[in-house]
Amino acid sequence: MPLSRVEPKGSVVISARDFLIRGLLAGLLAAFAAFAVAYVVGEPPVRAAIALEASGGHSHGAETEAAGEHSDAAEEAPAPGEVEVPRSLQSTVGMLTGMLVAGTVLGGLIGVVSALAMGRFGRLSARSSTLAVTGIGFVTVYAVPFLLYPPNPPAVGSGDTIGIRTALFFVFLAISLIAAMTAVLVGRRAAGRLGGWYASLAAIVGYVVVMLIVMALLPTYNEVPDNFPASVLYDFRRASFLTQFTLWAVLGIVLAEFVGRLSGPTAATAERELADAGA
C-alpha cells in the first residue's frame, strides 16, 4: 500500500478532495433529473392517493390532515397543528429541496467511495470502477430494500406504526450495506485465487444468500387499505423506482465522466507510479 506521497514534477496530483467535490456536483445534477422524473411520473399517483384519502375520511393524525389538504389550501392560513406547507409547495420547491439535499450528499459519499475503488476493482478503469460503485449503491441502498419494504404513497400506512416501520427499514438498509461491503472485500481477497470473474460471482451469490435469509427473518407489514386502487399503488411504486433509478444513473454517468477526466493520461500522479510498482 503506497502511503508516502511523492510530488511528481509537472503533473497534476489528484486527491480524495477532488472526488468529493465532483461527487457533490454530480449528485446535484442527478437530483435535478430525479426531481423532473418524480414530478412528471410521481406526482399524479401522489395526488390520486391524497384525493382518495381526503374522500375516504380515513384520517389518522396531523400528518394525514396535512396531506389531505389540496392546493387550494395555499390561500388559507394554516391552523396550529395542521398543514404548515401547502400542497402546491410540497409538490414543487419542497420536493426539489429534498431531492437536492439527498442527491448532493449521496453524490459526495459515492464520489469518495469511488476514489477508494479506483485502481482497486480488479483491472477496471477509473470510469468503470466508478460505475460499479454507483451500481452496487443503487442495488444495495434502494433496489433490495424495495423488495422487502416497498415504498407507499400517502394514505397508506398507520401513524401508530411509523416508528417500528422506520426502524425496520433502516435496520434492513444497514444490513444490506454491511453485507455488500463485506461481499466486495471478500471478493477482492478471493480474486487472487479464483480470478476476477469467479470472485465477483462468489461475492454476488454470498450477498444474495445473506439478504434472502435476512428477508425471511425480518417481519413485514401490509398497511394498504383493502379498497385502495391497485393501479395507483403500482403507479406510485413504479414512479419511486424510476425516480431513484434516475438519481443513481445520472449520478453514476456524470461522476464517471468527471473521474475519467480526473484520472486521464494527463493527470500523471505519484500515486500512479507507486500503483504501477505494486501492480
Binding site: F35, A38, G42, E43, V46, G61, A62, E63, T64, A66, A67, G81, V83, E84, V85, L89, Q90, S91, G94, M95, L96, T97, G98, M99, V101, A102, Y142, P145, F146, Y149, P150, P151, N152, P153, P154, G157, G159, I162, R165, T166, F169, F236, A239, S240, F241, T243, Q244, L247
Partner: peptide
Amino acid sequence: AGNAVHEWVHDSRHLLGFPCH
C-alpha cells in the same frame, strides 16, 4: 418541533421510497 420540515420534504421522502407516515 412542529411538522414543517416533514411537510416541506414530504413528496421527496415518499418518492425516494422511505416510510413517511
